[in-house]
Design a protein around this nucleic acid. Structure first.
Lengths: 213, 213
DNA sequence: CCCTGCTTTCGTGTATACAAACCCCCTTGT
DNA sequence: ACAAGGGGGTTTGTATACACGAAAGCAGGG
């Protein structure tokens, strides 16, 4: 693995997990020494993070970790609704029914995973990730998939702000199952509606349990 | 101006204007010597281009200029319709009416610009750019604006493939005027419909006059 | 004649040294 | 006392040298 990849992954993880708080300045020598690499690969890592929007260059004062305000969350979900709604509709038109039927069945059994402890809950997140991946593959549109991928980075960060209690996760699993069901049924408008519903409830939950940093 | 910015701007221009054709390998030493800079800033420029999707890293063998297939154009416009349709609707809800009324009036007088020679036609492209900028500002959503900006790079590249005859440009100006009119009227659904119509016609034109490279 | 293994060579990945720009702070003048 | 200008120090921007890896070419054997 390249040193720049290692630095990129480490910094990205630190930012997403809120170990590096917004406003933190990432000085090149300091971070390169912390990660045990040279400045050159670190600069490439910082470039990638800045391109993703996780950091911003603060004019001569190094790069700083970007923050996420309440307004940002609204904007983020506004775009997310647009993109994922369209993606769900396209998946319903173009996707393979059997794939999404399987995902629907798994999602209906997800409450068993959620009630358990952390390893099981991790399995649930993996399941949701597989649904996202299946939609990405089904839409047959690399540009849309790319746009959604770049969004998900910020969304994971937002999710870490909210309290993922078992109750909300159970409800979310049901909503995801409804999306998978609509896609499997080949009903674009229903798939879009189910996605809109899910995202609205998700946004409401995030804003209700949000703890400002 | 930094050397990396200079290299980035130069390479980006070369790719968009099809002076660097798809499949061209951009070797680091070769390009750094051509642009009169060192490898370090050139690498940063290539990183940025790759993040934008104008180039792709070819697994250890340098970066190559990406191509745009007919399928890519379809995918590009599918995403564009989603994003710009939403943006037009949001602009109609949140934008300042006076701003878009002025743009509508200017666009209605655009045929005079188009019939002229290149400098006047350049003024027309600038006018369309101002409409885009006005929409970007009106939506009050930096993430959506960012997504549209990253799309426009590829769209400019596609536009260079099509023949921009005066007839099509005159029609496009009328379609743009209709969009501005709908936004100024504060009618989101109409604004979205006008955008959808414009993009469909634009796509049809591109595919009709498309010359494969 | 073809296949395989080695060698050479080119190209990227990384480290480090140097240069320039910027900020902070201190000093000085009003 | 406050503002403006200069100097020191820190930080980024750039160049270059070196190391590692892969790919292409060549030679030898089957």
């Amino acid at each position: 693995m390249r040193a720049s990849d290692k630095a990129y992954a480490a910094l990205r993880e630190d930012i997403i997990e809120w170990r590096l708080l917004p406003g933190t300045v990432l000085a090149e020598v300091e971070q390169s020494e912390r990660l045990g690499i040279s400045r050159t690969p670190l600069r490439e890592a910082l470039s990638r993070l800045t391109a993703e929007g996780l950091t911003t260059t603060a004019g001569g004062r190094g790069v700083v970790v970007t923050g996420i305000s309440l307004e940002d969350i609204d904007e983020l979900f506004e775009l997310r609704e647009t993109l994922e709604g369209k993606a769900a509709a396209l998946a319903a038109e173009r996707g393979d029914a059997a794939t999404f039927e399987r995902l629907r069945d798994e999602l209906r059994q997800a409450p068993a995973l959620i009630s358990g402890e952390d390893p099981a809950r991790h399995a649930y997140y993996g399941l949701v990730g597989r649904l996202d991946a299946a939609i990405d593959a089904a839409i047959h549109n690399s540009y849309l998939a790319q746009a959604m991928r770049s969004l998900r980075v910020h969304l994971v960060r937002v999710r870490r702000l909210a309290a993922d209690d078992a109750e909300r996760l159970t409800a979310a699993a049901a909503e995801h199952a409804a999306i998978a069901e609509a896609i499997a049924a080949g009903n674009p408008r229903l798939a879009e509606a189910a996605t809109t519903l899910h995202l609205h409830r998700s946004l409401t939950h995030v804003k209700a349990t949000h703890v400002p940093h």
